[in-house]
Amino acid sequence: MRGHADPHTLALWAGGDLDRAAAPEVASHIDNCSECRQNLQELERAQAALRDAFAEPSEMDLQEVRCTLAARLDNQRKRERWSWSLGAVFASFVLVSLALMQRDAPRPATEREAVQLPPVHVPVHLALNIPEIKRLERSRPIPARKRGEAGLRTVNFVARADGTTQFRVTTADPNVVIFLSPMERTVEQ
């Protein structure tokens, strides 16, 4: 080892914290260097003074910790009990309120109380003007076996760009779509 030992190394050595691998070199240096030996002795004396300076906690201090802790825990338990009690009261209040609200709410009429109305029939006739039936040109006409039976399939109400409306009727034959413009509507009672 050149020069003196690093002060941090000596400080660790004094407390037995030095890495054992580095210890033999430091030990032989301390044996041969009076200055490092003196530094080490001062460190060891400082550590001894540190250990001597502190007394164990007195019984009075411990007793005070115990008493105050017991009182604080007791208060805490009381607060917890209060919280539970308040919670229970609040829950009861909510349940009673819900029960009262349920009692005042309109209940469905029983069969005896219900008023039976006679059924009303409202026949509706829709007059339609059929200006044209378009036959859509398809590049590959759908074969006849797929057309199924003739008849209406779906009726859609379609709004056009010019503001008018019309029905779009699809048939069993996908090649045939009927567009209808409603002209007149009468309701008969």
Binding site: H8, T9, A11, L12, G15, D17, E42, A46, A49
Partner: peptide
């Protein structure tokens, strides 16, 4: 922790040597 321990021990030693001198 080792760094804090060594620095702490050195600081304490310097403090006590400065105050107590040879009485330490």
């Amino acid at each position: 922790v080792r760094s804090q321990i060594s620095t702490g021990r050195l600081k304490m030693k310097h403090f006590l040597v400065a105050k107590l001198g040879t009485e330490l």
